[in-house]
Write a protein that binds this DNA or RNA. Structure first.
Lengths: 217, 217
DNA sequence: TGTACATCAGTGAACGCGCGTTCACTGATGTAC
DNA sequence: TGTACATCAGTGAACGCGCGTTCACTGATGTAC
């Protein structure tokens, strides 16, 4: 009886322990930031000796790389699913915000302070442009026939980042602007830069979102 | 002969060594990020034993705190000086961008990923609102009598962060938007998120800046 | 169904490292008479 | 101007810590006949 994709018990066990390790890693990142992530600390938390983890990850770097990959995947899937269920650009914005608030340090692992010298593996940039494609499709749906601003033209001349997406220049511009504006509000909010001031960050987020939609109409 | 503010030679020496320590600290941060900053490494770089630095800083935390303070001061002074020399909001934007590009890790020390649990000392928030005041003045100069958007009204209801600044609601809104939009572009640019894509980040920055000025006219 | 063997998860000891920080000290620099 | 004393910068040894990572090993789990 040939079971096509059946995992052996050992394989299932391995996969399960790997996820358990990652869960503890995320907890630790949420508590003390990514730079404080330690294999030994995770092992202790799991009630297991330090070297045991080397059965599951080649080392600290591989673990972090995989966490980054997972985070990108999670965001890409969350957005793609929402889009498939009919969310427009505005809907995607709120999905993005929800995903970020869910675990701020996970957001910062992707879009926060870079570690000088570290270079993300290739496949994460693939997921990253999958995200851009989702946004881009939602943007294209909003563009009727807006006049192309100079920067939109410039973007259209350098559209390597969109792959083969057939979006008009104005949509490229809108997607780019969407990304930077949402990130601008979100990252300052998550970093706590609005806490002293008493206004509601969500209202700022919505105001920025509306400024985008107004422009594209 | 009472010299009012004359520093003794020893005081001058102390001040000089303190600055030298900080310079090496910045070098180290630029090279490996703030989380990798180490007193012993600085000492070694200065050709001096580790404990020697404790004559100048109570410990690692005090050094970092002072670096943050200095960075805020530097940004506040840079903007204030530019404003005093006649720079308008657009001018301030380019000054801000220049300051950020000069030392990305310094920018991230202020506006990048927060370390969970760390709380900035009170005086840095004072400098931070000094920065906001400079921006706000430049914004107020641009506002003729724009209709107040809902969020501007909300901001005006919670204007704790502006101190006693007599700016109209629309100017508050503009300042806030200026901050988040410029940060959105800058932080993604400095973190290298545009490197794969081939367009020119400065053109995006300028496009965002123009979208602001257009709105305020 | 039972035995013989291979696979592999996890252990404990060990290595070398760099960290922040303390302490008692030496020796140079400044101060007071 | 010269001597006596206080101040203080910097040293070297030491403490305890946690880190990533390697290695030879035990013992349980799965596989083949």
């Amino acid at each position: 009886m040939a079971k096509p994709d059946a995992a052996t018990p050992r394989e299932r066990y391995r996969a399960q322990v790997r996820t358990e390790i990652k869960e503890h890693a995320w907890e630790q990142i949420a508590t003390a930031g990514a730079s404080a992530l330690s294999l030994n600390a995770i092992a202790k938390q799991m009630g297991v000796s330090g070297p045991a983890l080397y059965r599951y990850f080649a080392g600290r770097d591989e673990l972090i790389t995989e966490l980054i990959r997972d985070a990108y995947r999670s965001l890409a899937d969350t957005l793609r699913t929402a889009a498939a269920e009919g969310a427009d650009l505005s809907g995607l914005a709120h999905v993005l915000r929800g995903w970020a608030l869910e675990d701020p340090q996970r957001y910062f692992l992707l879009y926060g302070t870079p570690v000088p010298g570290y270079h993300a593996p290739d496949d994460t940039t693939a997921i990253s442009s999958e995200i851009m494609a989702t946004l881009l499709t939602a943007c294209a749906a909003l563009i009727q026939d807006a006049p192309d601003a100079p920067f939109a033209a410039h973007l259209a001349d350098h559209r390597d980042w969109v792959g083969a997406h057939p979006a008009p220049p104005a949509a490229l511009h809108l997607a780019m602007t969407f990304w930077t504006r949402m990130h601008g509000v979100l990252s300052l909010e998550l970093a706590g830069h609005f806490t002293g001031m008493r206004f509601d960050p969500e209202q700022l987020f919505v105001a920025e979102l509306e400024s985008l939609l107004r422009r594209s109409a």
